[in-house]
Design a protein around this nucleic acid. Sequence first.
DNA 1: TATTGTTATACTCTATAACTATA
DNA 2: TATAGTTATAGAGTATAACAATA
Lengths: 151, 151
Amino acid sequence: MSTEFHVNPDMIVQLYNEISKHFSSQRVRRLAEHLRKNDLSLNQFSVLNIVNHESECSSIHLANMLKLKAASITYIIDLLVKRGLVDRVENPEDRRSHFINLTEEGRKLLVVPEDTADLIQSFEALEQDDLDMLYLSLRVLKNRIIRNDKK
Amino acid sequence: MSTEFHVNPDMIVQLYNEISKHFSSQRVRRLAEHLRKNDLSLNQFSVLNIVNHESECSSIHLANMLKLKAASITYIIDLLVKRGLVDRVENPEDRRSHFINLTEEGRKLLVVPEDTADLIQSFEALEQDDLDMLYLSLRVLKNRIIRNDKK
DNA sequence: TATTGTTATACTCTATAACTATA
DNA sequence: TATAGTTATAGAGTATAACAATA
């Protein structure tokens, strides 16, 4: 395949952002629904997400990431521990601090369900050739991206 | 372009969802940051989004969409009106109810900034040929999708 | 003394119940 | 009588400030 101009990542990012805007509103709605159903605040959910990506995550680190006070982190972690969604593990190198780890229960709550019906509707607007090309493109993208994900 | 099998929208949705998961955590973080910077709760932001998409939106409708009590909607709308992000307009056909409309100020807060640097990094993992193909695919998708958006 | 994190307190948000106005 | 929405109050969740323990 060849194009008459040089496609660079920036150009794709710009396109991606425009497309992303189209789905933004529904994404927010799905997220809010997911949080409500699982009785999670946005900050609690953010903690689960951060803890999932960072091993040896301390309260201070969470406070910095979320721009919350340490006391709020304590409160949030207390609730999550009580629900069995995270664990507190002692930091052997600093007896003041703890590491926050995601439990299996917590990991289950990370995935926000997609609104499949609406997505399908969007893709159905495409011609067959474009569908084919999009599929191939996304498959390549997935393979390159997922490689860097843990598990 | 041709493939040895028939690509249908479902297959693309599945791929899309897998890719989407990869960006999910950062998207949540960006949203949380956007809300914090603009002093908005998730429900307040949801109200702005719903009001943006639905003209003649009533309190009752918002309560149904967000699964909140009417009294909570009153509280949220009061705050947003006070900040000049939405207006309350009388419903000429039913003097009990009001329509909630987004103001220009409110519209400015709808867009959640993307984390461009991280996106670029993802796309930089692709070969030039794949970049070209992805670009073409997304451009077609954008043109088909955006057509159905208002403004 | 500086840093990590907790306890105590104040504030914000949401739910419930009682109420007003209109249909 | 039923419905749309508001007001008043209580409770849950979150943030702020003062404090204790460790570095």
